[in-house]
């Protein structure tokens, strides 16, 4: 068994991010790594309500599109 002292939720987020980032790098390079990370972070907070989550994602994408011009 691994040590019980292993840090957890950050570990978990990093593990999810590693998976998504690897795929982004391999197959979706057109997508911004920062945006993908932000979307994942928004969904990691399980307590956020559905509508709030959709608004958050929409705003993040809009910000990115505006920045890209």
């Amino acid at each position: 068994m691994t040590s019980a002292a292993k840090p957890k939720s950050d570990d978990q987020f990093q593990s999810l991010l590693d998976t998504v980032e690897r795929l982004r790098r391999d197959k979706f390079q057109q997508l911004d790594a920062g945006l993908v990370r932000e979307l994942l972070r928004l969904h990691s907070n399980g307590a956020a309500a559905d509508g709030e989550l959709i608004r958050g994602v929409e705003q993040a994408v809009e910000r990115h599109l505006t920045k890209e011009g």
Partner: peptide, 23 residues
């Protein structure tokens, strides 16, 4: 551009679900 962005993001996370499950 907006539609393509959401479409790519959706595909990325869809594939990520399978890959993460496997890990």
């Amino acid at each position: 551009r907006r539609r393509e962005m959401f479409s790519d993001l959706h595909r990325l996370f869809d594939e990520a679900v399978g890959a993460y499950r496997e890990q």
